[in-house]
């Protein structure tokens, strides 16, 4: 749910690994972030609408990811997926560190990109030279296997 840069990149990667992937977004123009050879499905609709979640067959899904720009939308959709549709694996991006920690404690899989990115940006800006900074970024990419 949420076909921004992160959502689209994740969808493409999971699809390339042979998973059957459906990407949901309220804005059809968001699907431009997907690669042209994307093998999965796209669906225009609101992931907070139970009827939409029913229609895309969420009940049969093995995993649900919410990665819109809205923290509240992400955690509400995740809780619907988990508690109403019985999806086993549910992961969400939550920008607010306090809310992220709270929902993690409540049993959702959450990630807070803010803290991670701030730490990384700090390392990059503190690097002694541009070359050193680029090396640090390359090292980040290598750690992620990207």
């Amino acid at each position: 749910m949420g076909c921004g840069r992160v959502g689209a990149t994740l969808a493409a990667e999971l699809s390339n690994e042979g998973n059957s992937v459906l990407v949901l977004d309220t804005d059809p123009s968001a699907f431009r972030f997907l690669p042209e050879d994307f093998a999965g499905q796209t669906f225009v609709g609101n992931g907070l609408d139970m009827d939409v979640l029913e229609r895309i067959g969420l009940r049969e899904a093995d995993a649900f990811v919410s990665a819109t720009r809205g923290d509240n939308r992400n955690v509400m959709a995740a809780q619907m997926a988990k508690h109403v549709f019985g999806v086993k694996v549910v992961a969400s991006r939550v920008f607010d560190p306090l809310r992220e920690e709270m929902y993690r404690n409540m049993g959702l899989r959450t990630i807070n990109p803010t803290r991670v990115q701030a730490k990384r940006l700090k390392k990059v800006v503190e690097a002694p030279s541009d070359e050193a900074a680029n090396d640090i970024v390359a090292e980040f990419m290598r750690q992620e296997g990207g």
Binding site: L48, D49, M76, M102
Partner: peptide
């Protein structure tokens, strides 16, 4: 917005131990 009402209640209960929460349901 239902998502905002839900999160407001959850933050109030989980982090601030408010006794009673009421959520308006739009949908």
């Amino acid at each position: 917005d239902d998502e905002d009402n839900l999160v407001a209640c959850q933050v109030a209960k989980q982090l601030f131990n408010v006794e009673r929460t009421v959520a308006r349901i739009n949908n």
